[in-house]
Nucleic acid binder design. Structure first.
Lengths: 150, 150
DNA sequence: TATTGTTATACTCTATAACTATA
DNA sequence: TATAGTTATAGAGTATAACAATA
């Protein structure tokens, strides 16, 4: 492989969007590697995380928090229920909603997964100082808060 | 919609991966909005950008630069060729390679697109100072350089 | 009328594997 | 043997639209 123009900084590199995408691909691959290829996908992990942290959250509300459609959440909850990590419970007041109740097993699995992911992310981001990591997260959240209000 | 736990900072928010994903969704949506729904997708724009900046680049090399498989690039190049933005040219020395040659039209379309995207990204990121934007890009690149060597 | 969960469906992005023609 | 481009194919992830049950 010749290195002709590999060092040239292209237009692309100046876009936040492009850099965001490339970094995201790296971190996502690391995430999957951390939990193992056949384990929880990022979005399933995210759903479990919120279900554990907010027990009895409804599917609609969870979808809203995750920024996805509620139709898309069905398969995710199916998977988590299939794993025995949570159950759909009826709610006394409103018979339309399914409250997501994490099981003991789900809480344990989540605690383990979160520790693993945290460790891998820490290793992956070892080149960034703690301050840089905080800054990065702060700036990413700033983008989100801007975008979501439009 | 009740606001019960909407302000609680969940575990998820502490992960770089999660924040990266959420921010990426926002910026990508803004990108598509900038160019119009039926125009160049981000990846097609990226390919065009590199083809314009590195005329006669081969498909394999372009795929490598973009971080995708060369099989995936075929449809992208097909689209750009269909739009008359570039052409596949044979290379004297090696009859296997297809050199991507941007057309006049392609260069003009790219110049217009890049200006549009730049303006939209600038507006979207107006809450970030110029220094913050530079920092963000620097940190994202740092993640990429770490991840790609593993 | 509006909302919750659900299904069906389709589209985009991407990877893998195999092929061909060249080298 | 190895590489460039290509094709076929499959699997994620996601969105839209419609429906039944319930509010």
């Amino acid at each position: 492989m010749d290195q002709d123009d590999d060092d040239v900084i292209s237009d692309l590199e100046q876009f936040v969007g492009y850099n965001l995408k490339r970094a995201y691909v790296i971190v996502q691959a690391d995430f999957r590697n951390a939990l193992g290829q056949d384990a929880l996908a990022p979005r399933v992990f995210s759903a479990l995380s919120l279900a554990v942290q907010f027990p009895h959250i409804s599917q609609s509300k969870l979808a809203r928090k995750l920024g996805i459609e509620r139709s898309g959440l069905v398969a995710i909850v199916d998977e988590l229920e299939g794993l025995g990590y949570l159950s759909r419970a009826t709610v006394p007041g409103d018979r339309r909603v399914q409250a997501l109740v994490p099981t003991e097993k789900g809480c344990r699995a989540y605690a383990e997964a979160v520790a693993t992911v945290r460790a891998h992310e820490k290793a992956l981001l070892a080149d960034l100082t703690a301050a840089e990591q905080r800054t990065l997260i702060r700036l990413l959240r700033k983008i989100r808060s801007k975008g979501e209000t439009e």
